[in-house]
Amino acid sequence: MRADVIIIGGGQQDAALATRLLEAGKKVLLIFEGRKSEDRSREEFRAKGGSLLAGDKVCRVDWAEDGSRVEAIYTEGLEDTALRAEAYVLCSGRFFIRGLLSEEDRVWEPVFGVDVKYLKDSSRWCDPDFFAPQPFDSFGVIPSEDCKALKDGKEVENLYVTGDILCDGIDNTEELCKRII
């Protein structure tokens, strides 16, 4: 299966972004783990003709040999069906919806394993004041100036990243849309 853009969603802005790209004439596939009934904006996206893969999860990624591009992705539900696109957009949200995972002293992004900014020492992840800004709020995927994700410091040519998964509360939606549309 082929699309112009595949959005690996879950994050808050995934459907809004998907709809926007759709309206700009792109063929968009939105994949996310949750059930579709949970969110009206996702329903709207589908009603407008977008493709939705709800309750499914990316389980494998084919990388170009030199690691510079994503060639295809696969989901648990569609097993061996390669999903291909011009551009992939990672918009899978933060910790609560598993866009980011953590264990002691480590935070990672589980789908592509792209570079994440965080503090190594997990005893510094929280502020003792519940109502203060928490250090973990600033953790997240580091976007390049072109809104792309980095892997071991190198930009991945066709993998964009946006939404609340980004570090430091960065909002690059406008920039990203400009680049993809």
Binding site: R94, F95, F96, R98, L101, S102, E103, E104, S122, S123, W125, C126, P128, D129, F130, F131, F136
Partner: peptide, 22 residues
Amino acid sequence: LQHRWKGIVPVCRAEQLAQAEY
């Protein structure tokens, strides 16, 4: 919330970080 936060901070990672964020 402030009082209970104290007990969450030392174990705020993995699943508990997800809950803390929520």
